[in-house]
Design a binder for these strands. Structure first.
Lengths: 262, 262
DNA sequence: GGTTCGCTGCCACATATTGCAACATCAACG
DNA sequence: CGTTGATGTTGCAATATGTGGCAGCGAACC
């Protein structure tokens, strides 16, 4: 038992770690000097703490301290300009699969935003989405009922993510879903950047009558870390250009149909 | 040597970057001299920071500082331009009530959108809103966590409404809430257009530590059909001009404080 | 009691960031 | 059209920070 005496009660390592993470959450960054002064330990000790937390992937080390991770991908406004023509073609191909009166789920992402524009021509759709921009666009189209899924907003995606989103999704009966993805891997599978994203897409496949991935050619052959559950049960993958033969075969063997937009 | 001295603790690079981006988001542009003075570093350092952020595509460098490149904000809806000065004043008055670290609820509406812009200056806020535009704006401000409330999207409000929204709202512990309203009736009560809106606002009054209505002068003395439950428990009503004496007295008699923005 | 192990602080050396100074550019104005 | 003050750029030196080795210290264990 540690004596509860008058000793200066030096902070134990886990206590320091907790406080460091708390400050990170509150201020976004911490400095070695600050922390060393606060805990009254040497800078080396703080650095060792930061190294440890960094190895656990809970913060990023910068010169002079540490900072919270910011996924900081290129702003969405920039991404949506890339290969705009291809995305539009994918959007039109996707729209041809939709019939008046359907319940449509639209995932977040720039290609699904193109789908949202393409289906503006249709009537009497019920739209279900976690993307702020898609909701904002389609809510002004007459004859559309738009349901926004709630959750914590991911600035990179400009969309709700997380447990609340999964929860809200489960309440819908969806006729057709259009999903984004991080990459179309060489073995014919769509993969994702984040655990939360992969989970969300996987559940939507299970939930929707038919689920299609929409991807543009820039995603071919890339690799991202997370497999999407239920991928083989997706109805198809809509792309804007012919992928390599090997990739196409690998995909069709998994199950989903390959649709190449004109 | 004991580091008990309160040396100015030079800001870490990431902290400077956050602050620069925050100012960009709030004011649209920043100057090198301003920033150098604020952080107490040399102009070269600031320029190196700006170069770095520019390379990441997060701002554009101009002579004398940096500006945010806005791929043309597609002209905000007409309503928000009416009495823009007054709404901005209300927004600033509202922002003065907010402290770093708070959980803030922002209702839908054009005046609350002005509040959203005004609180961009603050840091480490958790925002909870049903408004698509507010979520879209604030999710890009560093240091803000934004929670979007789900629900069916009302095209007029560009916000989620309905049972799902009420449900999601109830899960939050809110420090301060800013609510819109349809009118400030002659008997000193804020009233609303729709049953769903009135119910949502009434519940938020009950839920939040402090609830303020934000209104501009165009709402004075008008009449809309629905009373807002719990109105007398609201902390205050923030407006941009002095209402008639009778109206002010009627309001103060109900309970909420009248705050007239400069 | 002795030993091992983990944590911590100190030291010396490597590296990164910053500020200064000199010079090149830019923009406003008569 | 040229001057003038402010701003941008570059090389370099000073300072702060990061890294690895080593020893002291206390706790746990044999």
């Amino acid at each position: 038992m540690s004596p509860v005496s008058h000793l200066p009660a030096r902070a134990l390592a886990p206590r320091r770690h907790d406080e460091i993470l708390r400050r990170l959450g509150a201020q976004g960054s911490v400095s070695v000097a600050e922390l060393a002064g606060f805990f009254d330990v040497s800078r080396e000790t703080i650095r060792r703490d930061l190294k440890l937390l960094s190895d656990q992937g809970r913060l990023g080390i910068v010169h002079g301290g540490a900072a919270r991770f910011e996924p900081s991908e290129p702003a969405m406004s920039l991404r949506s300009q890339e290969n705009a023509g291809g995305k539009a073609a994918v959007g039109r191909a996707a729209a041809r699969l939709v019939r008046d009166g359907m319940v449509v789920f639209l995932d977040s992402g720039t290609t699904t935003l193109a789908v949202a524009h393409a289906i503006s021509e249709l009537r009497d759709l019920t739209i279900c989405t976690a993307s702020l921009k898609i909701a904002l666009h389609l809510c002004h189209v007459p004859g559309m009922r738009v349901h926004m899924l709630g959750g914590e907003v991911d600035p990179g995606e400009e969309a709700a993510v997380g447990i609340d989103t999964l929860d809200a999704m489960a309440r819908f009966r969806v006729d057709i879903a259009f999903l984004g993805g991080g990459a179309l891997s060489p073995d014919g599978e769509v993969t994702d950047f984040t655990r939360a994203g992969a989970e969300q897409r996987g559940r939507m496949i299970a939930l929707a009558g038919k689920a299609y991935f929409v991807l543009d050619a820039s995603k071919f052959g890339k690799l991202t870390p997370l497999r999407i559950p239920n991928f083989e049960r997706a109805a198809g993958v809509i792309v804007d250009a012919n992928p390599e033969l090997a990739l196409a075969e690998a995909l069709s063997q998994k199950g989903p149909e390959l649709i190449v937009a004109a």
